[in-house]
C-alpha cells in the first residue's frame, strides 16, 4: 500500500514522538488537503504542541521522533525550519516588541519580493486586509488584543507559507473577539488554499472548523470524531 500523496497537502506518516525514552504520541497518520482545516484535541501533555514544533522543525532536541512528514509531496526532514515554509501562530501573538507594526510585517515578507517599493506594497496590502490601514508606524504594544492577533496572522501569511499551524491561537482572546478572529483566520487559510492544522482545548474551535477532529491521548475506540475520513486516524499514549 502506498499512502496518498496529494498536491499541496500536508501529510504525516507514522509519526511518533518520544521524550526521555517515554512514548508521547503516535504512531500518527494524517493528511490535510489544501484549504482543509484539521483539528487536534487532547489534554495538556499529550504532545500536541510538540507535534506542531516537529512539523516546523523547531522541536527541542530532547525529543526523539520517527516517521515522515511531507508537504506538497516533498519530505520536510532535510529542511531547516526557515526553509520549510510552514507558518505557525501561537497562543500569544509574539509580535516583536522592538519593531513597529509595519516592521513586524516586513519581517515576514520573503526575500524573493525584491525592491523596497514592492516590499512596502506587500506590507500595505496586509495592513489593509487586517483592517489596520495607517497603523504601520504604531508600536505593537499600543494595539488592542484583536488588532495584534490580526497583525500576527498577516505576518505569518506574508511569508507565503505552504501550510498553516495554529497552536491554540484563540485561547487568550475574549469570547466575542474569539469567534471573529477565528473566522478571520479560517477564511484566510481557505482563501489561500493552505492545509491547516489546529491544536485546541476548546470544542467550539473544533466545531467552527466544520472539519475533521482528532483526539490525542485517548482510547481510539472511544474516539468519536464526527467527520473523521478514512485516512485519518490517531492514537497516542
Amino acid at each position: 500500500m502506498t499512502w496518498p500523496r496529494l498536491a499541496g497537502a500536508l501529510e504525516l506518516h507514522q509519526i511518533g514522538l518520544e521524550l526521555n525514552g517515554r512514548p508521547l504520541l503516535g504512531p500518527l497518520d494524517l493528511a490535510v488537503a489544501p484549504g482543509e482545516i484539521v483539528t487536534l484535541m487532547g489534554p495538556s501533555g499529550s504532545g500536541k504542541s510538540s507535534l506542531l514544533a516537529l512539523i516546523c522543525g523547531t522541536l527541542d532536541p530532547a525529543f526523539r521522533s520517527s516517521g515522515e512528514i511531507r508537504l506538497d509531496g516533498s519530505d520536510l526532514a532535510a529542511l531547516p525550519p526557515e526553509r520549510r515554509r510552514v507558518g505557525i501562530l501561537f497562543q500569544d501573538d509574539l509580535l516583536f516588541p522592538h519593531l513597529s507594526v509595519a516592521e513586524n510585517l516586513a519581517f515576514g515578507v520573503p526575500p524573493w519580493v525584491r525592491g523596497r517599493k514592492a516590499r512596502r506594497q506587500k506590507v500595505r496590502e496586509a495592513l489593509a486586509k487586517a483592517d489596520l490601514a495607517g497603523f504601520g508606524d504604531r508600536d505593537p504594544a499600543t494595539l488592542s488584543g484583536g488588532q495584534r492577533a490580526r497583525v500576527a496572522l498577516m505576518r505569518t501569511l506574508l511569508a507565503e507559507p505552504r501550510a498553516l499551524l495554529l497552536d491554540e491561537p484563540f485561547s487568550k482572546l475574549d469570547v466575542a473577539l474569539r469567534a471573529r478572529f477565528r473566522r478571520f483566520v479560517f477564511d484566510h487559510a481557505r482563501a489561500e488554499g493552505l492545509p491547516t492544522l489546529l491544536v485546541t482545548h476548546d470544542p467550539a474551535d473544533a466545531e467552527a472548523t466544520g472539519g475533521t477532529v482528532l483526539r490525542l491521548g485517548e482510547d481510539p475506540a472511544a474516539e468519536a470524531a464526527p467527520a473523521a475520513p478514512a485516512l485519518s486516524k490517531a492514537t497516542g499514549g
Partner: peptide, 25 residues
C-alpha cells in the same frame, strides 16, 4: 523561545534571528 521559533518559521535564518530578533530584544 517562541520568538525565535516564530522568526524561523517566517523564513529567517538562525543568524538573522540572532541579530535582528534576539540581540535587539
Amino acid at each position: 523561545e517562541r520568538y525565535t521559533r516564530s522568526a524561523l518559521c517566517l523564513g529567517a535564518r538562525p543568524g538573522r534571528v540572532f541579530w535582528t530578533v534576539k540581540l535587539p530584544m
